[in-house]
Write a protein that binds this DNA or RNA. Structure first.
Lengths: 233, 233
DNA sequence: GTCTATAGCAGGATAGAC
DNA sequence: GTCTATCCTGCTATAGAC
């Protein structure tokens, strides 16, 4: 398992070694990882169709043929990269519950939710995460199964983890609300909706300032607790 | 001003006649409209880069050169089409306030909001509207100004109209809430957030059934009135 | 496995007749 | 303005030497 950090950090690319034949680690995996990293950078910044395999090869410092030897064709290169990056989403989803373990009072819940909201919003609005969303959406018509798989492993997985978290809090009496299945999407899109929507269309400029993140997160938590908090808001 | 309905109705393409030279209406505008309609259909279903100018020409029943005579190049064809379609968004934004004019009681507000929510959600989740969003997002890296202009004339314009509507209702005492500027995005993304997010990634299948539209709309209105209704929820 | 060189093809845009 | 025919560039993918 090789991890190659992107140019501005952020996303992590995980590319599995080829199962059929064991290659010399230092050489083959090095080139494979270099190609994956170059392709990730170029696909995210320029798009899939606008990036040529020759550009990938020269950025990675290998010949075009090596790209084809390692990945077969351009489509598989995209698939491995997109699905490799979803490891980040899994880690994020698993980490969501971390900060909520010791919570057992409404005041503690309030504070923990504000922290969670800031992390969630900051992660989703990360420029590389937004670029990955644009990339997958751009190719959703051509590769519909890839788009669905990305959605299920990424956004849907986080929503599900959030739902589990809220269900646990409801059992402990820290949340109320008739329909716990609605709580997670309500929270998520009160928090993310506007910024994410706008962020899809503004590619260069960040949509939210750090102060904007705080205000948006606090407002979402205020509203969420007014709706679902144990003490009526 | 020529209007050409799309294949499945829905979007309306408005292409202005060329200002520099007055063409014979029946001939020139007919071909121009045919090209615009063909390009709209192809761009929405296949994407911009995956559609060749020759494909546009043959679908429209003209030669490739006629496409270039009318629109200059492929990029301008995309721009005119995307911006032409925003006329639909303007009409929708202006129509939002229509159903709310006679509202003067909380009960009337409740009913009018449910109707509005259904229309809003149905419009945004229309397959052609989703395809247009995907198209603009796909080209946001290449044509950032087009993406921003689309956002401002489309989603942002509707949000602004909704904000004006809610401000008027607050003045008449039908809504409360400390921050009226938050009310519009809160309502919009409680209503649209999840479905729109998922809809970006599921190309073929509709995300919401008609019953799902009703449930989602009612839930959003319930939550919104609990937060911002004049009578505490 | 890796490289250089190239096949094979499609795309955007244009020239010239009418 | 419109059409047919064409140029030229750039792409994916492969062949063959090492």
């Amino acid at each position: 398992m090789v991890e190659a950090a992107g140019p501005d950090d952020g996303l992590i690319v995980r590319i599995r070694p080829r199962a059929d034949r064991a290659p010399r680690p230092g050489v083959v995996e090095g080139k494979r990882a270099a190609i994956a990293r170059a392709a990730t950078e170029l696909f995210l910044s320029q798009g899939y169709q606008a990036t040529s395999t020759e550009q990938v090869a020269s950025t990675a410092g290998v010949s075009k043929q090596t790209v084809y030897n390692q990945f077969g064709d351009k489509e598989r290169l995209l698939r491995e990269i997109v699905l490799g990056v979803t490891a980040t989403a899994e880690a994020f989803a698993d980490g969501l519950a971390e900060g909520m373990r010791g919570v057992d009072t409404p005041v503690g819940l309030d504070a923990a939710l504000r922290t969670l909201a800031r992390r969630y919003l900051t992660t989703v609005m990360n420029p590389q995460v937004l670029a990955l969303r644009r990339l997958v959406i751009s190719e959703a018509t051509r590769f519909p199964d890839l788009a669905v798989t990305y959605y299920e492993r990424g956004p849907a997985r986080v929503l599900a983890a959030l739902g589990d978290l809220f269900a646990g809090l409801a059992e402990r009496g820290l949340l109320r609300g008739a329909d716990p299945t609605r709580a997670a999407p309500d929270f998520a899109f009160l928090l993310l909706g506007r910024a994410l929507d706008e962020g899809m269309f503004r590619v260069g400029d960040p949509v939210l300032t750090p102060a904007g993140v705080d205000q948006t997160a606090d407002h979402a938590v205020d509203v969420f607790l007014a709706l679902y908090g144990a003490r009526p808001g």
